[in-house]
Design a protein around this nucleic acid. Structure first.
Lengths: 138, 138
DNA sequence: GATCTACTTTTGAATGACTAAAAACAAGAC
DNA sequence: GTCTTGTTTTTAGTCATTCAAAAGTAGATC
């Protein structure tokens, strides 16, 4: 069974390795995980996988656009498989939990600032800060 | 001459110190500076100021809302004095330069996601990524 | 199916931004 | 001027991430 991951990786011009497949699979079940969390999960099935390798793999996958890297202020880098669908993030100011939000006003209003100050704008990123349900209860 | 900084700091419930005034003044002339850049400038007028003190001061000022801390993915924390005016940022993917943009569509359309997923949203942050004029030329 | 080479992972070490803790110091209330 | 408590200094230490060299392996080629 190829899982589809093989073709995905190969399509990105990368070699298919057990580590890369495991990282992609992990991100499907646990989106917004950081390198350390991914490493713990991957290490469960692939004994000798080092945290450095995970960083390496995440860098490669992000470099080819297979995954997206998000870095909420105050926490370490998170990764996710949802790419190119213009969704944004809710981040808990208390515990750092991350949740997806689909783009607010239809297409992408936020994607075109009035005055770009000469910048050639490529992408826009929206982060909402607040308290997650669990932290509100506490 | 009080510069106005004194009242500002005191009003935030903090003691007025040379370091804090110097940091605020620096951020007025060089918005979006990181701790290291601020330290270099402040150290010019206050010999014995350590980088740790600058981090400390920045933490205190940000904690009381006198300055804002922004952390573009891939670079270290930047600080600015503009606060509470709902403006956003343009960040150069090449050199990391940061520039201000006023909120796009009137008030704050981006501030209210359609589905908050149970989060109690407090603020929204928009970051535009692209090439700054200088890097476009290169 | 065996071989070879460039790409990957491993291993081990280093970096850089930031935080922590204790001691020295100073703002500002009295 | 004195005293108290908030700040800064000094010195360490942490953490996520990056770097470099050696070992290993995917997969193209024979």
């Amino acid at each position: 069974m190829t899982d589809g991951y093989e073709q995905l990786i190969r399509g990105a011009g990368l070699r298919v390795t057990a580590g890369r497949v495991a990282v992609l699979r992990t991100l499907d079940t646990r989106p917004h995980s950081d390198a350390d969390a991914i490493h713990r999960i991957v290490a469960g099935e692939l004994e000798n996988t080092s945290i450095q390798s995970v960083h390496n793999i995440l860098g490669d996958l992000a470099g080819t656009g297979l995954i997206r890297r998000i870095v909420p202020a105050g926490s370490s880098a998170r990764y996710e498989r949802r790419v190119d669908d213009n969704h944004h993030h809710l981040v808990c100011t208390e515990c750092g939990a991350v949740s997806d939000v689909d783009c607010v006003v239809g297409a992408a209003p936020c994607l075109t600032p009035a005055d770009t100050g000469g910048f050639a704008v490529a992408t826009a990123e929206v982060t909402f800060w607040g308290l997650c349900p669990r932290c509100q209860a506490a």
